[in-house]
Amino acid sequence: MPSASHTRNPFTHVETPAVGVAVEHLTKNFGSLKVLKDVSFTVEPGEIFVLMGPSGSGKSVLLKHVVGLEYPTSGRVMVDGHDAASELTRERVRMALVFQSGALFNSLSVYDNLALYPREHRVADEAGIREKVMHALRILSLEGAARKFPADLSGGMKKRVAIARALVMEPQLMLYDEPTSELDPVMSATISEIIASLREEYHVTTIVVSHDRDLALNIADRVGILMDGKLIFLGPPSELREPKDPVVADFLAPKIDLQHPRFKKLET
């Protein structure tokens, strides 16, 4: 186990200080649509932070700010003390985002998907890259899929390949966008276990965007709930077992009410 304040590289086993994330008064508008409204929270180094919220609440947009794919309307996101909006931050801090769809390169085999980052950044020779890729595939139990193409993989395997590809980047910060969506309950639990194991073994700071209640309650150190662009809850998962806020309670354990269906109350 690495020390609490350090992230261990899964390949070299070298320990580097774990990174933290600070979201400061983040506001994001797309035209007249306000997606994020003055959101602030911090993610401690080595922590698993799960950001929950209903669809369209701005979770994925917030995640894109952390990795520098979106720029704030106001406020800022700091990653290890560097502004996430700056391109230099991606060079200073190794961040890996596991996309909801996997975003695997369809024209490349699984092996080449994983080898792309080390090849482009010339972090090792071809033999070293092979070792690294096969090691990442072994961690995710994917050795047999190396020669396959993304189109030949099941949904669960695609997610695992996406995680393996992120792992090859030797990340200090792992970001997951809806990692258990579109998966069966067993595969969802498997992905949750993988996320927790990677944090346990390598102490990599982890932010997970999800509306998977089981994932949040079982692996999160802290949970944030975003609703209509505002952070309405921030605390340990234990507080979510019996939430006091009725909005939070309804989100986590919605009751199916056939007499008064929700969709009839929704604005069109």
Binding site: K64, V67, G68, L69, R90, E91, M95, A96, L97, F99, S101, A103, L104, F105, N106, L116, Y117, E120, H121, M169
Partner: peptide, 21 residues
């Protein structure tokens, strides 16, 4: 297609500029 299916975003998060590759 790469843009719509987030492959271009994936390249950017890997710090591989799409203009280069």
């Amino acid at each position: 297609s790469m843009k719509v299916y987030q492959e271009v975003d994936a390249l950017e998060t890997m710090n591989i500029p799409p203009a280069r590759m």
